[in-house]
Nucleic acid binder design. Sequence first.
DNA 1: CAGGAAGCCATTTTT
DNA 2: TGGCTTCCTG
Length: 756
Amino acid sequence: MTDRTERILEGLNAAQHKAVTTEGGALLVLAGAGSGKTRVITNRIAYLIEQGVAPWKILAVTFTNKAAAEMKERVYRLVGDEARSIWVRTFHSSCARILRQSAERVGLTAEFSIYDGDDQKRLMKQVFNDLRLKGGAATPSSAIHLIGLMKGRNEGPDDLDTTSPLEDEVKRAWKVYQERLLRANAVDFSDLLGLALKVITEDQTAGEGWAKRWTHLLVDEFQDTNRVQYLLAARLAEHTGNLCVVGDDDQSIYSWRGADISNIVDFEDDHPGATVVKLEQNYRSTGTILKAASALISNNRQRTEKTMWTAAGDGDDIDYFVAADERMEAEYVARIAQHLKQQGRASNLAVFYRIHAQSRVLEEALRSKQIPYRIVGGIRFYDRAEIKDLVAYLRLLNNPASDMDLHRIINQPKRGIGATTVKRIFDLADQKNTAALDVCRSAASPSAGLLGTGARKKVASFVALMDGLAELAKDLGPADLAEAVLARTGYTQQLAAQGTEEARSRVENLAEMVGSIRSYEEDAENQSQEPTLVGFLEQVALTSDVDQTDALGEGVTLMTVHAAKGLEFEEVVVCGLEEGLLPHFRSVIEDDVEEERRLAYVAFTRAKQKLHLTRANERTLMGQTRYNEPARFLEEIPAEILTRSGRSGRGRIPLDDRSQGQSRGWGQNRPWQAERRRRPPKDAIPDAPPRAATRGSARSGKKAKGRWVAGMEVSHPKFGVGTVTAWTGTPPDEKVAVFFPRYGLKTIVARFLQPL
DNA sequence: CAGGAAGCCATTTTT
DNA sequence: TGGCTTCCTG
């Protein structure tokens, strides 16, 4: 055994050792939370190389760029320069790369654009307008969602059931949507995977190319793969059968995005003779935290049995706080943060919540105490309007067929090209099935009759502007080109002229953007690759907000539970453990609480030393106040390890008997109690029917949308009068969750309900 | 055509 | 609640 091999295997436990060294064939590593999963993958890659596998024949796929970067870094540390030629990438970037090289096969050019969720939605809105689908069963968002799910299952528009009005509408929209994507030389996220699969499959029947390029495949977070991703992995590994997948079914939290948990659960059946290794030792959390998490997750039925254990001691109890409302909850969180800040440990703390909308109060509370924090997610930097404008120019220069981008910037900055002119151009583009920029070009000539003189001149000068930039694009690098765009279009100038604080910050953001393009150029050069516009645009499209986490910095970290997967913190607060929030309404109605439980499980298992749970009796969200019951998950945690703190009245103050004294300091002074309100009776409902209640029903004639409003009163022949809390689906599948004072929360098929 | 005011609408998680 | 669309005015 060489020294290096020794180092690779050093300190691994028996299961990890097996996972790293098992040779050839299918390998399933069931890696519980905190069990050293990343270490196993990276060491396995290193081990393969030690065994003589050529680095460029190894492909490791992850879900986030961040995970990929970390993995690559760790492999690099183990094997040095050889790590360079290993493909460690996300599914999406691997597929993008594959597709760039074989774009013509699917009717694209190598410069194709990648449309993100926002672009998709805008495109779909246009399609809905043009097909006059507004007011029907489908909405642009629901259509996109459904199309995404179906593409993820490798299905097409013809797999929709046209007897359902919703599906019929989606089918029609889908076809037009797809035509326009193709015309724009663009793909959406799902196409990236689907088309790459197509290319590889065709390759395979030809017995060449991608299908044989890699001999060893590793897939991380396998529980989050959808059908297409599963097929991709299978196809790429088919000729050697060397497929190693790593995951944890208890941490599958993306089924809404098409992740299919059966990919991991059925892996053994699909791959007879597969080696299965379970990593069950947790190296992250205290015994208490692990106990709580395990107890919680054992309530799920759909899972492979695992028993996590730890050699660590029990540690602190789990701290549980019930606030009167969300502001008190935030105040409590801020106090925890302040306490840590005084010890210089603020960055050891993370605060998790179910939905982004919860972050605002938390931010306010932290800010008022001057506690530094950083917030992950919400809006990406790239999602700011001014950045998207700049990117749209660059994308249009890269791919002149990209109509979405033209649409965005044709009058941005304002150059007097108004809505009517734009509409004429785009209508003609649809009619002639050509790129809108080409229509602009022909409409700009004096002989064309499409536009009036004024509009024509303006369009002509816009076309000249773009042509000039296109000329520059031939010689300039991406960053210089971006600067030229900002200068020549007068974008920065127009912003600067506004003189407002907001405009100033936009100018700064643009400067930062140019800076980030420059650092992309440097990165590329460091890897001895040519920095290209396509390359940069691809990075923009495929970088998520989660990837931008490591922007190091002092302070408390705020994020959704989804964003927290894969991370760990000394101390964690999970907010809003309420029925309706975690578990979320939708999941309750759609009967998928198990996924929410997994979400809670992921949240709990991020904590190393200390876990706090909070909830609020009353919460105002989206302008509606409601009284939430405690999350069922709370009852699933053994009572003896849950210590309720800050309880009002003369009750015990359990903070005193803490071993580490971390909790000291809040006990004495609890201002939130001063304002503590009488908790409404258990079955309380907002007493006045909200104004909205009249809205939906009074405007009769309108189906579906707006008929149900949280808080409105309805009557049911059997259960009597109740209050709507949530609803889902479209008629006739529409279901409404109603709280009946006498019977509790019920899910009712909408046609049995009578609005009051 | 641009900008402001008023109304409408939809409520999760995101590669 | 707030983001977006539509309507109205200069």
